[in-house]
Amino acid sequence: MPESEQLLALYREMLIIRYTEEQLARSHQMGLIHGACHTYVGEEAIATGVCAHLRPDDAVFSTHRGHGHALAKGVSPHEVIAELFGRSTGCSEGRGGSMHLFKPEVGMMGTSGIVGPCILQATGAGYSFKLLKSDQIGVAFFGDGAVNNGAFHEGLNLASIWKLPTLFVCENNMYATEVPFAYSAGNPHVGNRGPAYGMESLTVDGNDVLAVYEAAGEAIQRARGGEGPTLIECRTYRTRAHAEGMRDAGYRTPEEVEAWKARDPITRYNGWLLENEEAGPETLAAIEAEVKEMVADAEEFARNSPWPEADTVSEHVFSQR
């Protein structure tokens, strides 16, 4: 069980992700976001539970649904919102948008518009860290849609044969856009696939932040200790549409969505903290108010930020050296 301070930090981090995502959804409706916006609402426990164990020099590689990973890894809501607004103060200085959030200074090595490569790149980070004899680790977050891609097979095999310090976190939210995972996987138990590669693997409730925290903690300790990679399947659900502005019907039932909303990771954790007297209602309310204000400030910062200068468009194709 984490210390009290850590328990509250987990709560605060999930709220940062939730409030930022809800702000982004509103901003999308107002036309302030120019491209795609895939929110992480409902899945906050996973990024939070994993990244709580990571240092700034650990490397995270993420997906198209990656705002939560960036925030949990230490990118500020200001830099995330500004990036989606296309402003020069965004974490990718307006060159990336939602699916290309980069802040290597805190180990956020990119969200991605392509499903799969993050698995290989996290494997490569593991290779670097092993070669450099450091105790850093590489972490890949990816959805169920990635595990039937060749990158999953090749990446897990390479990480296994060289015992790389890499953690593979599958966020199984049951749908690849609208294609059910139950339809597209011959073996729908991702958490059972590790042994096929000679690797530890397990399944956890991805809507239970403490379960994720515990499983990730053990796997990360093994990776840092040279004991190799782990695959963790986190069962979860996105409660908003695949992307903002998309229809969200025809492939899942309202009853299913409501059932998962009843398992909301933040509401559940709030209840757990109160029940176990880890925090009183005032403490939690104070955290909620503080985070709300931070996100409101971030939105204002983003909205008032300058656009990138058009004459910088050709910079950074190659290194400046």
Partner: peptide, 21 residues
């Protein structure tokens, strides 16, 4: 030495190049 896994080791080397090697 690698397995015959071109996409795998090229993607892996991308991640390695991003992290100091």
């Amino acid at each position: 030495d690698t397995p015959i896994s071109e996409r795998g080791f090229v993607g892996m080397c991308a991640g390695a190049a991003m992290t100091g090697t």
